[in-house]
């Protein structure tokens, strides 16, 4: 098959990385505003409900910190992991990826733009959950600014994981299932205080990227937070984020041209 073999046509420029990322981010955020606000409410109410339940069991101290931090990060897991896995699974199954694959856009811009939009969309829900938790368990609110670091870093790790699951799942239903399971893991391993868990479960908890976000956040409730450990936890979160977004980008390339 050929079209005009006479002269070689000039290639149009590629879209550059950051402008393309910004365009995808803006479009995804507008999508999320229209379609996902009810789901953000669900995510927030779910976390608030879990904290109310745990109020009967947990009596303050480090356990209360873990519950509030875990419930707040759960909002991120719900949106960034679960919903993003569903979105990419659906986009792949319906042929929607063709749209991006026939535009001269770097794959990383598409994946990072979508992941960043989903992650930043979780910020208000995370904040509401954290404030409610602090009031419920009587924790200080002075350290909540740390969410400005926890949400993007845990968001990157979880969104990358969600995007990779959605893009790698052979069928759309499996993408949805993987997203749900990932969120359940974040719920069980993140919200329940680790002191009461058996050894194997604690080990599984250490493998979950959101755990480091939860730990970093929980530590800031202490009267004199150990900032070095907080920074280390956030560093782990960020490293996992880079890794999982790289895997997601690879998965996107693989899914887009097949």
């Amino acid at each position: 098959m050929s079209a005009g073999a006479v002269a070689v046509a000039e290639l149009a420029p590629r879209a550059r990385f950051f402008p393309a990322l910004a365009a995808v981010y803006r479009a995804q955020l507008s999508r999320a505003r229209v379609a996902r606000i009810p789901l953000l409410f669900v995510a927030t109410f779910q976390s608030v409900g879990i904290m109310i339940l745990m109020r009967g069991v947990v009596d303050g101290g480090s356990e209360a910190r873990a519950v509030v931090a875990g419930s707040s990060v759960l909002v991120v897991a719900f949106v960034a992991l679960n919903l993003l896995a569903q979105y990419f699974g659906q986009l792949r199954a319906s042929g929607g990826l063709d749209h991006y694959a026939t535009l001269p856009v770097p794959p990383a811009s598409v994946v990072l733009g979508a992941a960043a939009a989903y992650a930043s969309f979780t910020l208000p829900g995370t904040l509401v959950t954290a404030v409610f938790g602090c009031l419920l368990f009587g924790l200080p609110m002075g350290g909540l600014w740390i969410l400005a670091a926890v949400v993007p870093l845990a968001g990157a790790a979880l969104a990358g994981l969600g995007a990779a699951l959605g893009l790698l799942a052979p069928r759309q239903e499996l993408a949805t299932l993987a997203g749900q399971l990932g969120m359940s893991a974040a719920l069980l391993l993140g919200v329940l205080p680790p002191e009461r868990m058996p050894g194997v479960i604690v080990w599984a908890r250490d493998l979950l990227p959101s755990t480091y976000g939860v730990e970093a956040f929980a530590r800031t409730f202490a009267p004199h937070p150990d900032w070095a450990t907080v920074a280390f936890d956030l560093g782990v979160c960020g490293a996992v984020g880079v890794l999982s977004l790289a895997v997601a980008t690879w998965a996107y390339r693989r899914a887009a041209v097949g």
Binding site: Q90, S94, G96, H99, P104, V105
Partner: peptide, 14 residues
């Protein structure tokens, strides 16, 4: 291809 042509596919999900 993406730098030479514009493609309108059958799906609009994106």
């Amino acid at each position: 291809a993406s730098r030479l042509l514009a493609y309108l596919g059958q799906e609009s999900t994106a």
